Computed example of a mutant assay.
Amino acid sequence: MDSRNSDVIRLAKLIGRTANAVAIRLTNFAAVDPYHQARGIKGMDGGRKQCQPIWDEFVENRESLLFESERILAEKENLTLEEKFEGLFRDIKDLKGETKIREVKMRINQNVFRQIVLSNYSTKCAVSNIDIPDLLVASHIIPWAVNENERLNPENGICLSSLYDKAFDKGLIGITEQFSVVISKDLKMNANKDYYQKYFAELENKKLLLPIRYLPKKEFLQFHLDTVFSKRNN
């Protein structure tokens, strides 16, 4: 949120404001974010009051407003969404109408969610410390299809390598409210195999690499243990 931050400077140029003005606005938005409130971020009284209703609207409607923010940003950059996110749409170029619009919105939102989650974990797998972006996934704790309201919540995301993302998604591993990894009975049935010893044996009770901002929400982790992980432990 510093006025010397290169992203702040770039945004300021795009919207025709000073970097200092943008930094102040960001601080005021942070002051209404519960995470930053807990860190003691105060902001300015007048600015905070202006930001509160915008923040509330966004939190209640993340999917539409995150997409809208990306559309406006692309417009400021003199780009279309198709140009800015070209790689996301190659396989849906023949879709038409509402079907294409829904798919475009979903892919852009998922892409932004991935950026947020990877940044939150310093672009490292929270289990293995792998730091190759192409091998990392923004893994949802509560699955995407289960809760629309939490799809884009950074507290519902963990940065995992592709292997551990799949294991987490299928309930073969879980994460406790103390941020420790647990291994399912189904997976432990393979304990005598080389790949288990190589990739899973050391995970039991291993502490998660914690993010720099938004911790995984404990209620979400418990939901995963109760509804996804538990299926592999009966």
Rank of each mutant, 00 (worst) to 15 (best):
S3F: 09
R4L: 14
R4W: 10
R4P: 09
S6T: 12
V8C: 10
V8E: 06
L11C: 11
K13Q: 13
I15G: 06
G16W: 04
R17W: 08
R17K: 13
A23T: 03
R25T: 12
R25H: 12
L26I: 11
L26H: 05
T27I: 11
N28Y: 12
A30L: 03
V32W: 05
V32S: 07
Y35D: 07
Y35V: 06
Q37D: 05
G40C: 07
G40I: 09
G40L: 11
K42V: 10
G43L: 15
G43C: 12
M44T: 11
D45F: 14
G47K: 14
G47D: 04
K49M: 13
Q50D: 14
C51S: 13
P53E: 11
P53I: 12
D56G: 09
E57G: 07
F58N: 04
V59R: 15
E60N: 15
E60S: 12
S64E: 08
L65E: 05
F67R: 03
F67L: 02
E68W: 10
S69M: 05
L73F: 09
E75R: 11
K76V: 09
E77G: 10
L79S: 13
L81H: 06
E82Y: 14
K84D: 08
F85M: 05
E86P: 01
K93M: 04
K93H: 00
D94K: 08
L95E: 01
G97P: 05
E98S: 05
T99N: 09
R102Y: 07
M106L: 14
R107G: 00
I108G: 01
N109S: 05
F113Q: 03
R114S: 06
R114P: 06
I116W: 04
L118W: 02
Y121D: 01
T123V: 09
C125K: 01
V127I: 15
S128V: 00
S128Y: 02
I130T: 03
D131L: 02
I132D: 13
P133S: 15
D134M: 12
L136K: 00
L136R: 01
V137E: 05
A138Y: 04
S139L: 07
I141N: 01
I142S: 07
I142F: 06
P143D: 07
A145E: 10
V146K: 15
E148V: 15
N149V: 12
L152Q: 04
N153A: 03
P154Y: 04
E155F: 09
N156H: 00
N156E: 00
G157L: 08
L160P: 01
Y164H: 06
D165F: 00
A167H: 05
A167T: 09
A167N: 09
D169F: 02
I173R: 12
I173K: 14
I175N: 07
Q178P: 11
Q178V: 13
F179N: 14
S180D: 14
V181R: 02
V181Y: 01
V182Q: 13
I183V: 15
S184T: 02
D186N: 12
L187T: 00
K193M: 15
D194V: 14
Y196S: 03
K198P: 06
K198S: 14
K198R: 14
Y199M: 11
Y199F: 15
F200H: 06
A201V: 01
K206W: 03
K207L: 05
L209P: 07
L209I: 07
L209T: 07
P211C: 02
L215T: 02
P216I: 02
K217Q: 04
F220P: 05
Q222I: 10
H224V: 08
S230M: 15
K231F: 10
R232N: 12
N233W: 08
